[in-house]
Design a protein around this nucleic acid. Structure first.
Length: 229
DNA sequence: AAGCGCGGCAACCGCGAGATC
DNA sequence: TGATCTCGCGGTTGCCGCGCT
């Protein structure tokens, strides 16, 4: 399920993300936002490409990301929208804010597509009888076409939330301690494979982005309490 | 108990669109 | 107005886990 970690010709790491990398990415985006995905990894002390960071953030680390079993309602929405929009995963994901487009796409390919195909095959056979089946019937039949697993927010979902919380608590400690803890005063160890002139380190020990890119509105409006780790 | 095949999911790749220079 | 950069999307791949034989 995970890719073997390796480095490309530019010295950028590929493959599975480590807990340490997750911490760095989450800490940096929490503080500065994603002002520039391409530049972000070197400022955050990560030997990753921007795309990889973006994907990791969106699919796993961003607040409120939900994992684990899909509810019947979620499946219904996906089936409905896919019937209307086709493979517009980002548009479909916009209707399910807690799910990423990648996750919905995976879910479709691994589960829903199969159900839809199975049902359509069955439907073709039944259509030979002359009875026309409505789209509502069709959707309901797809939803019922395999054993439904109603256990919402399974242990997987819980473990995902716990993982996010683990990252936060292990690295940040209690919220009250954030500004006085050693974490903020110790700079991230920047990977030696990255070739860049170190930008200024801020009072918290993070590498500051170039000033024009600091999202002031983000910083002023951001509240750690809103962050669902 | 061991081997095999499939399912599920994380992550990568290539391309197009929009923004900026 | 064309070139370049950056982002985001959709398709695809790689690999682990698990069930079956």
């Amino acid at each position: 399920m995970v890719r073997t970690p390796c480095y490309d010709e530019n010295g950028r790491k590929k493959g599975t993300w480590t807990l340490e990398e997750d911490k760095k990415l989450a800490a940096y985006i929490t503080k500065y936002g994603s002002w520039n995905w391409r530049q972000l990894p070197k400022y955050a002390g990560l030997a990753r490409c921007g795309k990889s960071c973006r994907l990791r953030w969106i699919n796993h680390l961003r607040p409120n990301v939900k994992r684990g079993n899909y509810t019947k309602e979620e499946d219904e929405i996906i089936l409905n929208l896919h019937a209307q929009l086709g493979n517009k995963w980002s548009t479909i994901a916009a209707h399910l804010p807690e799910r990423s487009d990648n996750e919905i796409k995976n879910h479709w390919h691994t589960t829903l597509k199969k159900r839809a195909t199975n049902y359509n095959n069955k439907n073709n056979i039944e259509s030979n009888t002359g009875r026309k089946i409505t789209s509502v019937e069709n959707q309901n039949a797809i939803l019922e076409s395999s054993e439904w697993s109603p256990k919402e927010s399974s242990s997987e979902a819980l473990s995902s939330i716990n993982y996010q919380q683990d990252i936060f608590h292990e690295e940040f400690g209690n919220l009250e301690e954030i500004t006085s803890g050693s974490f903020w005063t110790e700079p991230f160890e920047v990977d030696s494979k990255i070739d860049f002139v170190a930008p200024p380190i801020d009072y918290c020990g993070l590498v500051c982005p170039p000033s024009p890119f600091i999202p002031h509105e983000f910083l002023s409006s951001f509240d750690l309490d809103d962050y669902n780790w």
